[in-house]
Design a protein around this nucleic acid. Structure first.
Length: 102
DNA sequence: AGTCGCCACGAAG
DNA sequence: CTTCGTGGCGACT
C-alpha cells in the first residue's frame, strides 16, 4: 500500500494523541500548515495502519464525532463513540467535553 | 503531463 | 438548513 508524505505526517501526529484525549481535524491541519481540514479527513479515511494510528481520536472541530470507517453515521459511528467512551472520554448531549482536547 | 471531481471539514449565509 | 472555500489525491485522458 502506498502512503504519501502528507499522509505520513498526519499519521505521525495522530499516533501521538494519548489515550483519553482527542484532536480535531482542524487542529491537525493547522499543525501541518494545511489549509484544508478536509484533506486530513481524507488521509484518515484510508488509514492503512489502524489501530496503531488511533483515528477514532480525531473528531470535528465542533466536538461532534465526525466519521469513522468511511461513514459519517450509522453503526460505525456508534463504534467510534464506544471506543472513546471506553477511554474515559465524556460526552454530553452528543458532544465531547472540551476538557479532553489534546 | 494535465484535468476533473470527490471528500471522515469548517465557516459563513 | 444551504452554500462555498479549501487542498490532497485517485481516476482518467
Amino acid at each position: 500500500m502506498r502512503v504519501t508524505p502528507f499522509q505520513q505526517r498526519v499519521y505521525d501526529l495522530v499516533a501521538r494523541i494519548p489515550r483519553g484525549r482527542v484532536a480535531t481535524y482542524r487542529d491537525i491541519a493547522d499543525r501541518l500548515g494545511c489549509g484544508s481540514a478536509r484533506a486530513v479527513g481524507q488521509a484518515l479515511k484510508r488509514n492503512p495502519f489502524a489501530p496503531r494510528v488511533p483515528c477514532h481520536r480525531v473528531v470535528s472541530s465542533d466536538l461532534t464525532l465526525g466519521g469513522f470507517q468511511g461513514k459519517i453515521s450509522g453503526a460505525a459511528i456508534r463504534r467510534k463513540l464506544r471506543l472513546l467512551e471506553g477511554e474515559g472520554i465524556r460526552f454530553t448531549k452528543g458532544r465531547l467535553d472540551e476538557s479532553c482536547r489534546y
